[in-house]
């Protein structure tokens, strides 16, 4: 009797683990199978400029371009802003305020992305429309700015943790040698926290690439490259906004559907790669301390 419950318990535990472990594979396989049609029938033409299902053209370049432009704008703003803010919260702010600041940031990181989208529609896009005198304020640039705000709390808390985990003795020793605060941060703390900061940035990068709702609402959703190509104040499309807008209206198993899933597969692979990179990066720091 006892032996039996022991066996049932073991079976339960192993089954749960198998389920948890294979969800990722399952998602990958489903995406791969369903994008196969596009890969085999369209092939290299997927890497072209024109997306027009009616004519059987499924070029994803403008979506890729939009994805990277939006993410690039977000990171370029959020990384310096977030890192400097984290330096403040960890190294300059008195530690008695830390709990309040951390909780506020966590709260902000928890605001659902649809609400960021609403704020983007109701304020940001209208401001930019007036500010830059545009036909529509829904542009790649708007999406990038909104996205930078969304990933800011993530970057701040993770980077703040990275700094905060450094033992106090490094700071005191460097102070004892007559270094200024900025020198201590630059030459002692940043090198030690580097791997963790890198992993924070990689995670934020992944989040930005995969963010859907907010981007979808403000990016403009037009499937072509801006002209000139660097005119980011024009509407565009990202992989996520494309999927969000169109997948539900596409018939299952069509080439069109398959081409959409192919973009999903691409996004999935890139984000997975970044996540694994981030995880490996933060593991290395443990060895650094002692």
């Amino acid at each position: 009797m006892l032996g039996l419950t022991n066996k049932v318990g073991k079976f339960y535990v192993y089954t749960s683990t198998l389920i948890s472990a294979f969800v990722v594979f399952l998602i990958f396989i489903i995406l791969l199978i369903n994008s196969w049609e596009a890969i085999s029938t369209i092939g290299l033409d997927l890497i072209s400029l024109s997306w027009n299902p009616a004519k059987g053209e499924f070029g994803i370049i403008s979506m890729l371009y939009g994805t990277f432009v939006v993410t690039f704008i977000a990171l370029v703003i959020a990384i310096p802003l977030g890192t400097f803010t984290a330096i403040f919260t960890s190294e300059i702010l008195a530690s008695k305020y830390r709990f309040v600041v951390k909780s506020t940031l966590e709260l902000l990181a928890g605001i659902p992305s649809i609400i960021y989208g609403l704020i983007g529609i109701a304020f940001l896009s209208i401001w930019f429309q007036d500010l830059f005198d545009l036909q529509s304020g829904r542009t790649l640039f708007t999406a990038g700015i909104l996205l930078s705000v969304m990933i800011l709390p993530t970057i701040i808390t993770l980077t703040d943790d990275a700094f905060h985990n450094i033992p106090e003795k490094y700071r005191e020793t460097a102070k004892g040698l007559g270094l200024y605060n900025s020198e201590i941060i630059k030459e002692v703390l940043v090198p030690i926290a580097k791997a963790d900061i890198k992993s924070a940035i990689l995670l934020a990068f992944g989040r930005a690439l995969g963010e859907t709702m907010a981007v979808m609402l403000v990016v403009g959703s037009i499937d072509r490259l801006p002209s000139p190509v660097l005119n980011w104040l024009s509407p565009g499309q990202t992989i996520t906004s494309k999927l969000g807008r169109e997948i539900a209206e596409t018939s299952f198993r069509s080439v069109h559907f398959s081409a959409m899933i192919f973009m999903g597969l691409l996004l999935f692979s890139i984000v997975l790669f970044l996540t694994i990179l981030a995880q490996n990066s933060s593991k290395k720091t443990e060895r650094l301390y002692e």
Binding site: S20, V24, L26, I27, I30, G206, L243, I247, L267
Partner: peptide, 27 residues
């Protein structure tokens, strides 16, 4: 390996979950 799988699952963009559910469960 299991850790990597768990972290990977955590990192998957939410829209991907949506299309996965659409294909597997709905269709």
């Amino acid at each position: 390996i299991i850790n990597t799988l768990i972290y990977s699952l955590n990192g998957i963009p939410s829209v991907i979950f949506g299309i996965f559910g659409l294909i597997l469960f709905v269709n």
